Computed example of a mutant assay.
Amino acid sequence: MIKNEVISRAIDYILTHIGEPIHVDEIAAYCHFSKHHLSRLFKAETGEGIYEFVKRLKIEQSAFRLKVEPDRSITKISGSYGYSSSNYSTAFKQHYDVSPVHFRRTILERSRTNPIFNNTLPDWESFADCQRKITIEQLPDYYVVYDRHKGSYKSLSEHWCEFLEKHKTYRTEETLLMECTYDDPVITDTDSCLYDLYMTVPEEAPLSPTCYLKGGKFAIYHFKGMVDQIYHGIQSLYNVWLPQSGHFLDERYGFEIYRKVDGDYMEIDICTPIK
């Protein structure tokens, strides 16, 4: 778990400004730390240097856009993360050892294997099947207490148990349990994924760290099934429904809302920000 709140704050800044040039001086000023002290703390907490972390996130989030926005040009996608065409191709190949063109050509086929459970997926759902499970809704802002982790999604269940035990005093019938998984594990190394666990709490609750999850317009895929089927549903949402829907991804980050958990059976609202 990322326990240092200053480092979590630094990551928040990076995530919010990922489409812009990001300098260590700016992050340090935002966190009210010297850049040298912040750099040492960041490396100790995350295992990565700040610049290394920023560069990786820019490339991996742009790679996700290459995957789910097949009609958007590589030039436009790379530009939205601050790269020129030539610089992007070089940085991308350094990270993935293939060109952006080759990556885009092969990523859908590679996404047919679940990297978390190492099982081959069935055919993705059709657009019509997805459409029946999706609603377009305006969601409010949510005030939450949260834990942030960097590692494998395989640890989610263990971390949820610890998180709920820690905050059980504030859990009521109206409480929502939510999470944000920032990375696609077929694109990001499975041990380097970033994810947050959230629980809605009253604003006056003496807890930390807390934040507001930004609401707005979302496409909500209402998943019902076993835990090892969630990845299949997410891939169907992004690779089948989204490109054909006429909607476009927003810059906000999505999240999942847990509606029911019964052993390995789950009902989850997968909330994808759109515009």
Results as ranks from 00 to 15, higher is better:
Y83Q: 09
R110W: 01
C161H: 14
R112Y: 11
S192C: 05
P70H: 10
D189N: 14
T181W: 11
T90H: 11
T200A: 04
A91K: 10
D71T: 12
Q131A: 13
Q131T: 06
Y88L: 03
S78T: 08
Y170C: 00
P100W: 01
I187W: 10
V201G: 03
F103L: 11
R110N: 12
D141A: 01
I134Y: 04
E158R: 06
L121R: 03
Q94F: 05
D189V: 00
C193T: 10
I107D: 06
V186S: 15
T106W: 05
I116M: 07
Y195R: 06
Y182K: 05
Q131G: 02
I116H: 03
H102M: 11
L176Y: 05
I187T: 00
L177T: 06
D183K: 15
S86F: 07
T75W: 01
Y81L: 03
R148A: 05
K76R: 13
R65L: 15
K76L: 12
S155G: 02
Y182W: 13
L197D: 08
L177P: 01
T120M: 04
S73G: 05
C161P: 00
W160C: 01
L156W: 01
F92G: 07
L207E: 05
D123C: 05
W160H: 05
V68G: 02
Y96G: 06
Y142S: 06
T90W: 09
D71N: 14
T106F: 09
Y143F: 15
S85P: 00
P100V: 00
R171K: 14
T90E: 12
V98K: 08
S99G: 07
E173H: 09
K93S: 15
D141K: 03
K168S: 12
D183Y: 11
R112I: 03
S152W: 10
Y83V: 05
R104H: 04
G82S: 06
A91E: 14
L177H: 12
G79C: 08
M199N: 02
R148L: 10
L156N: 04
L194R: 11
R65N: 08
G82R: 04
S208P: 03
E162F: 05
E179F: 00
L66K: 09
E137D: 11
V186Y: 03
E162M: 12
T172V: 04
E137P: 00
C180L: 07
K168V: 07
C193P: 04
N118L: 12
T200Q: 09
C130R: 00
T172R: 14
K93T: 13
L207R: 11
